[in-house]
């Protein structure tokens, strides 16, 4: 408990670092981000227009 109180900033920081690493690995694995890195494709959203 004492460690938690004294080192709370360190613990939260390391948790943030770990989640950043996890997100980067996930993104590298699915490689979609890498391909869709231009405005032509990345921002293409499917919208429907009703007439």
């Amino acid at each position: 408990m004492d460690t938690l109180v004294t080192h709370w900033q360190e613990i939260i920081s390391l948790a943030i670092v770990a989640s950043a690493v996890g997100a980067m690995i996930r993104s590298a694995l699915n490689r979609k981000d890498m391909k869709n890195n231009c405005s032509n494709c990345a921002l293409m959203e499917m919208k429907k227009k009703e007439y």
């Binding site: 670092v17 950043a20 997100a23 231009c38 405005s39 990345a42």
Partner: peptide, 16 residues
């Protein structure tokens, strides 16, 4: 797109 890159790739690299 620029802000998306800043909020994902650059944010991740900065944290690591």
């Amino acid at each position: 797109l620029f802000l998306k890159n800043a909020g994902t790739i650059i944010l991740g690299v900065s944290i690591v």
